[in-house]
Design a protein around this nucleic acid. Structure first.
Lengths: 362, 362
DNA sequence: GGTTAGCACTCGGTAGCTGAGAGTGCTAAC
DNA sequence: GTTAGCACTCTCAGCTACCGAGTGCTAACC
């Protein structure tokens, strides 16, 4: 399992915190994470066996506030962690919480069930992440930077219609309808497919474009050449569209969990989060910066650039093979996320996804 | 275009309403539909050129309330339509509002763009419905009652892995990974595929099961027979799963429109609606009762059995070919839906989907 | 010097009250 | 059958008072 750092390079401004201050920051975050209400000095003393009085805790809280790690909604309220506070917690304070062996077993079992159903992998990943973390789970299929064709097929459907199918290297299917001239002979179709496979399989969009040029000199009225050229063009277009789309599919599950969080009761903030999810450009951008080598990353609150995401955190991990195909799994929840669990779960699920992908190349 | 009745068979209890009462009911509904606030007698007189005084209108409103078509949130509030009120409106009062020719043209154009991309049809249908009605649009692919296999393919992916693909009659693809024994020869794979296609294409799950039995007597150690048997079994399983799933895919778009409605500001009702959508069993049930011949249907508020759907209405229309494959398109919004527009739009989109499906069989 | 008890202070949230306004239902006159 | 007039009801917004949680400060303590 990868042990890439969770760090993201942001350091807060001031001097190092002593041990006690760290313990108190940690206590505030963990208390707030479960209660969703500002945390007061009294509560901390009562529940976290700090061996000091509430007055001392108050002094430390004030200090942490100076450092920008906590803040005060108003004078007589308790403290709430800032994004920087969570960041410090994630980088230095928390212990990662691996999933319990029993749960691991159950999850592994479920993944075993869909071992052969590639289209179920991402759904299951999203669902698993959602239910294990009680937040939203997201997942994308593993996708190569430049797709390569493994096989063409052209299957007649109606009299004048066929289904043009291209199988990509990792088994992904792309399909488009394809009109046939009246009276096209089955043998001609078969021959066209043979030629396409002979000249294009294993090739990327750029190569296919190159090879298709050869057919331009062929006689225009030859039925087979005509088929080859038209099908090749269509396939090329599909391939280019596929390459162009960074986030072709984004599965999510458990958005209802996020809806249940008290910070989203107002339905307006919620709306914004849903909008951010619907608009995939942000994810496309993120995915360009997260590499397989970089490993798991955490984006907290306003560290997410879109304003809509200011109230949520994202734990994201890539999976797949750097050279071949890369996908993502992650968890999205309120900034008041249970980071140790979320990170542990995402790491685990991404390793399972890695195993599934490895099967393809075994 | 179909002119199936919108009716659903529920009649309210009491005597017929005179013309004026109908006009007033209609006015209340149309006003409430756009304002989302209880409607008073004054407003009605001012905005709907009723040639009577507000006192008279009040008398009629009281009458309509007796009939169960309107109700009163509290003494000094205006009237709000009941589900029965909407039902009466939909069945007897409203005029259906066809989409404007310009909009029709634009929508047709968009459908033209995805003519060959079967997987985009449902997305586009949902999106179109959502944006034209400013509610949520839903759509499912056309699905046959019992799928028939058109073609098998077995495409090697890695050394020990292949992608088993079955193309169904309407062009739908089903795919599963398939392990190959070490050193399986390409020619054997091709031969196995040839035999599978020869014996199974055009057949339904039941027929395939029948035909596969023939191979049981074949020598167990024959590589080709082994492949045929295993691939056949897997295909059969896929086919059965596909047949079993009534609502295999349910595309929706524009849920954000529904979120924006004032009746769902509280986020708790919203949650329930989302839950209902996620749980597809209700749709599966509906789809069993809606037939292509029956045409478009409207489900208002509590007419939807699940409690979660008590605050929303659903306009649903089937498309496709009764014998071959049937799918659904629809609109989901608050009971305060603009029924004439919603119904007009759903009818139009379902007819476009019909045209697309017809292409397949042309 | 760090820690603590004590205390004044602040401020959000809730409950209770009030007046304005919307809309009804009733009645008597037309 | 219709309408004007009017008393009545009820919600909603705004106001005030009050409670309590939690702070920050200070002076005493170890």
């Amino acid at each position: 399992m990868s042990e890439a750092p969770v760090a993201r390079g942001i350091r807060h401004s001031a001097g190092p915190l002593d041990h006690r201050a760290q313990a108190i920051l940690r206590a505030v975050i963990e208390e707030y994470t479960s209660s969703a209400a500002p945390v007061g000095s009294q509560t901390l003393v009562e529940r976290y066996r700090l061996q000091v009085s509430s007055a001392t805790v108050r002094a430390v809280l004030a200090e942490l506030e100076m450092e920008g790690l906590l803040f005060h909604p108003h004078t007589s309220a308790g403290r709430v962690p800032t994004d920087a506070g969570y960041r410090f917690y994630v980088e230095s304070l928390m212990g990662e919480a691996p999933i319990s062996p029993i749960e691991q077993l159950m999850i592994r079992h479920q993944f075993g069930q869909v071992e052969f159903a590639t289209d179920q992998w991402f759904r299951l990943a999203a669902t698993t992440l959602a239910s294990a973390t009680r937040s939203a789970g997201i997942a994308t299929p593993a996708k190569p930077r430049a797709a390569r064709i493994r096989r063409f097929e052209l299957v007649p459907i109606g009299d004048r219609m066929a289904s043009l199918i291209i199988v990509l290297n990792e088994g992904t299917l792309k399909q488009t309808l394809f009109t046939l001239d009246a009276g096209t002979r089955v043998e001609d179709i078969e021959e066209a497919v043979r030629r396409l496979n002979a000249s294009c399989s294993g090739r990327s969009a750029a190569d296919v474009a190159e090879h298709l040029r050869w057919f331009d000199q062929a006689p225009a009225d030859d039925a087979i050449f005509g088929l080859v050229r038209r099908a090749g063009d269509r396939a090329l277009r599909l391939l280019r569209e596929f390459d162009a789309d960074t986030v072709e599919q984004l599965f999510s599950d458990g958005l209802l969990n996020v809806m249940a969080a008290p910070e989203f009761a107002s339905s307006e903030k919620l709306r914004r989060v849903f909008e951010a999810l619907e608009n995939r450009s942000y994810f496309a951008e993120l995915f360009d910066t997260v590499t397989v080598e970089g490993g798991l990353r955490v984006y907290i609150g306003r560290e997410n650039r879109p304003e809509e995401m200011a109230d949520v955190s994202l734990v994201l991990a890539p999976y797949g093979r750097p050279g071949a195909a890369v996908g993502f799994v992650g968890v999205l929840g309120p900034t008041r996320l249970r980071y140790p669990q979320a990170i542990g779960t995402v790491r685990f699920v991404s390793s399972l996804m890695n195993d599934l992908v490895d099967h393809l190349y075994a």
